[in-house]
């Protein structure tokens, strides 16, 4: 992968710049304008924009089509793809279609279980898992073949990403899993939102100890906290989310009107600390329904203009 960059994100990372990505959740409807509005807030601010795939198992505009709306604005998308809703036939077909439209980054995920989504009565698929999906995309890219071994008329040359949650249990196994994802095909990793820096550093140390930080670009995830109740809710209800008590108290300690400001301040401090950790090659800002703050964060972090 040392040849021509596959995508803008790949170019930024391979030249050693500190990458910045953000997230855009498609609307619960056919309103393309909603995607373009969110996209406009991110233009020139980030290197690529993740587009979620029916996130939290709620029916939304498809990731592929929202990616296309962003590309029309001149933004580079990272198409998220979950294995929850499609079998290997549909997944591969959509990867081919996405690449034909010019989508060059993919993030391979298993997806949130439908139990907590808008259609808990749905049948899930999980024909293959995220690791299998990574390997499938790489096989398509490097061997020009689909999973059945059939030669493709046009291989999708995508820059391949995976997610990692440094905070989920069992902790010791998390690094083995990261290593597997890299072996399976991950070029870059976007992590779960980081609030517990000590635990993240411990994970990075373990990863570096295994030589993994040399093999993959790790983009550390951050999410600015909007309010004290939101912070508390996330800490208690979002699986695999680790927000240390002192941070929760800090959010609760400021007047309501100032909470958002405090959240941004915490985010900037975290970002600063993350930049100093060896092996962290970028940041992934997940400002859920708060896209207008991404520019503020990137600007105040001194990360503008983008390379």
């Amino acid at each position: 992968m040392n040849t021509e960059p596959i995508s803008n994100l790949h170019r930024v990372l391979s030249r050693g710049h500190f990458a910045v990505t953000a997230e855009c959740g498609p609307p619960r409807g056919a309103n393309g304008e909603a995607v373009r509005e969110k996209g406009a807030l991110l233009k020139g601010v980030v290197d690529a924009v993740n587009v979620t795939d029916n996130q939290t198992a709620i029916v939304r505009m498809s990731s592929i089509s929202a990616c296309k709306h962003l590309m029309d604005l001149g933004l580079e998308p990272v198409m998220q793809m979950v294995t929850r809703d499609r079998n290997r036939i549909a997944l591969q077909s959509d990867i081919l279609g996405a690449y034909s439209l010019g989508i060059k980054n993919i993030l391979c995920l298993s997806g949130d279980h439908q139990r907590f989504g808008s259609h808990p009565e749905a049948l899930n698929v999980f024909d293959i898992d995220s690791m299998n999906l990574l390997s499938t995309v790489r096989t398509m890219r490097e061997q020009g073949k689909d999973l059945s071994g059939h030669a493709l008329d046009g291989a999708p040359k995508m820059f391949i990403g995976a997610a990692a949650n440094p905070f989920a249990d069992p902790f010791e196994y998390r690094v083995i899993r990261l290593a597997k994802k890299i072996d399976a095909g991950a070029d870059f990793i976007q992590t779960q939102c980081i609030y517990n820096l000590d635990r993240f550093k411990a994970w990075m140390d373990m990863a570096a100890g295994e030589g993994l930080t040399e093999k993959v670009h790790i983009l550390a995830g951050v999410t600015p906290l909007k309010s004290a109740p939101m912070a508390r809710y996330m800490a208690q209800n979002v699986a695999g989310m680790d927000i240390p008590e002192p941070l929760l108290r800090r959010m609760a300690g400021v007047p309501k009107k100032k909470a958002a400001q405090e959240g941004i301040a915490i985010c900037l401090e975290t970002l600063q600390a993350l930049r100093e950790i060896p092996g962290v090659h970028g940041v992934h800002i997940m400002a859920i329904e708060w896209e207008n703050q991404v520019k503020t964060i990137v600007e105040r972090a001194g990360l503008l203009p983008r390379p």
């Binding site: 279980h113 899930n124 995220s130 249990d169 196994y173 597997k180 695999g240």
Partner: peptide, 21 residues
């Protein structure tokens, strides 16, 4: 496993319990 995962736990595994229940 609620997601039939073949290659390790999802990010929601917490204290030995499944994120789904």
């Amino acid at each position: 496993c609620a997601k039939k995962l073949l290659n390790g736990p999802c990010g929601g595994s917490q204290e030995g319990k499944c994120e789904v229940d």
